[in-house]
Write a protein that binds this DNA or RNA. Structure first.
Lengths: 214, 214
DNA sequence: TTTTATTGATTGACGAGTCAATCAAAAGGG
DNA sequence: CCCTTTTGATTGACTCGTCAATCAATAAAA
């Protein structure tokens, strides 16, 4: 069995196992042994590849964030107008890969992790800032000065729906969350819409939206 | 020193110390010894009065929630109209006693605790439901059927601003958070305002939008 | 004397990280 | 193509520290 090139496979397995295990436990109270067992190896090997528990967690966090980032990027690529882009970003947050129970649980845990570990905090900040910038860029073209507050509000609401779902034992319901944030966006945009200057040029002040996927 | 009637004093000191210690650590990774030391007693005494770590945490959580509850109740008592009541509830969340760094940190930790301990979860649920009911009751008198979605949105946004402030190292800024949620309330209320009682008088966009969830 | 307060010391469990040893594939050298 | 050497993979066993919980003992009220 001892072949060459195991490192990436093992690391990937460990990252996946870490997220699953955090999801199962609902917290960071997860032992390296548990993670390693789920990933099908000894705890010593986990240490060998990652060096320590912290780095395992960090790698798992990086993975979650990168999956999330990819999701956002893909959704943005398919959007044409600024408004569509904002909607795409909002939707991305509640799309399946990011909105499964274990991942929601992991997000919540990462927030806690970010309170104590500087690297984790830095990582989370990068993504928060990126989200804010993206929202801001597109919102600026729709509403003027209010865009910063709007971006903050949207981001807060997204986080809020996440946390709220962390406590529901029922399977997460992306539709409600998405609809809620999109509705907020709608309100924000329609307030500042001048006669027809909502930017997307449809002149309809944000009706005729594609009603919620699925 | 050994006098009678120490129990309530000791318990109170422990609860306070627990919150402070959780705030300092930024997580639930806090030992009974640390808490006891901060409260000026031995860890054995902490165990003696509370029976175990879990019950100490639960008591701390109960305390935070009860302070919060009192705040809300007081604010509600001073409000006259339904709208004022909703605003009062919103404001309460960001009022000093609830919006200090340690308490914010504690809230976040309690969310995590609620994921694993059933009593903690139950406790948090009670307060979430109470908040939702309160909001719902007053919103119903302002907007009709949309009030449930609105209450959910407001609650989510409040939580979101909390979590957001948990990561800022700067002292929390209640004004921005309050303004953000109140602005959202504003938007929600003006949408459903009848013919032109909405005050913003734009009378244009943002009505008759796609119905929310489902 | 009984009850309450209080603690130092101890126990028992658990968990992160280390290490030496094993195993097998690859690499090299004749 | 065999033999040897190197190197990566892998683990069981062990160390060391920490921490929740317990207990027996002490001291001071009541």
């Amino acid at each position: 069995m001892p072949k060459v090139g195991m490192e990436p496979i093992r690391k990937e397995a460990l990252v996946r196992a870490t997220i699953e295990e955090i999801g199962r436990a609902g917290s960071l109270d997860v032992t390296v042994a548990q993670i390693a067992k789920r990933a099908g190896m000894s705890s010593a090997l986990a240490h060998h590849y990652f060096g320590g528990k912290d780095q395992i967690f960090l790698a798992a966090m990086r993975h979650v964030l990168s999956v999330y980032g990819a999701q956002v990027r893909a959704a943005l690529a398919a959007a044409d107008t600024p408004r569509q882009r904002v909607e795409a970003v909002i939707r991305s947050n509640f799309e399946p890969p990011n909105f499964r129970p274990e991942v929601i649980s992991a997000w919540l845990s990462f927030y806690v992790l970010a309170q104590t570990r500087t690297p984790a905090r830095r990582l989370l900040r990068v993504y928060q800032n990126r989200l804010h910038s993206t929202l801001l860029f597109d919102l600026r073209q729709l509403i003027g000065e209010r865009s910063d507050a709007a971006a903050t509000g949207i981001a807060a609401m997204i986080d809020g729906h996440y946390i709220r779902h962390a406590l529901h034992d029922a399977p997460p319901n992306p539709l409600e969350a998405t609809a809620s944030v999109l509705d907020y966006l709608d309100l924000v945009l329609s307030r500042d819409a001048t006669a027809d200057g909502d930017g997307d040029g449809n002149g309809l002040c944000g009706r005729d939206r594609v009603p919620l996927k699925q």
